[in-house]
Amino acid sequence: MTASSVEPNRRDFLYIATGTVAAVGGAAALVPLIAQMNPDASTIAAGAPVEVDLGPIAEGQVIKVFWRGQPIFISHRTKKEIEEARKVSLASLPDPQADDKRVKPGKDQWLVLVGICTHLGCIPLAHQGAYEGWFCPCHGSVYDTSGRIRQGPAPKNLPLPPYKFLSDSKIRIGEEDTAKV
């Protein structure tokens, strides 16, 4: 008995082998159990790119379209709004980003944003707040005319969805530019 407890025997081998199989099998079984909660094929398919005609959007108007169940703001900015967004010193911003990095080259008047407050996901209201950009009614975050966070608890600027210009008056949301326009 004492001798066999020092030398690994067949029972020790079986014990370790069974334990290993159980651990690996248990871990492998977790994969489908967890992965099933991620977006399913129909949800992903419903998130295909959408095309938006910019023609009817008047200067100074903000419209809301839906892509992947998320509101997308398309703002046709006035000259004043563009100027206000550009004259701010970047150092004073909580999440510094230049306005021309937030629009497509040569399309300064078109600002396209994911309309979800980066704090806790409410939908900010357009043309409101101290900077006349967006104001979130839930917890008081204030965004400027470039959709950048200026005040309040939100940590980041309103994100930019992937989109590209198909023509001067048409964009496709959900697809990034492959080449520079």
Binding site: I34, M37, N38, P39, D40, T43, G47, R68, G69, Q70, I116
Partner: peptide
């Protein structure tokens, strides 16, 4: 958050789980 929602926003998959 996407995993919790089962989508890109709160929707039917979220309600069912």
């Amino acid at each position: 958050v996407t995993w919790l929602w089962g989508g890109y926003s709160v929707g039917n998959p979220t309600l069912q789980r």
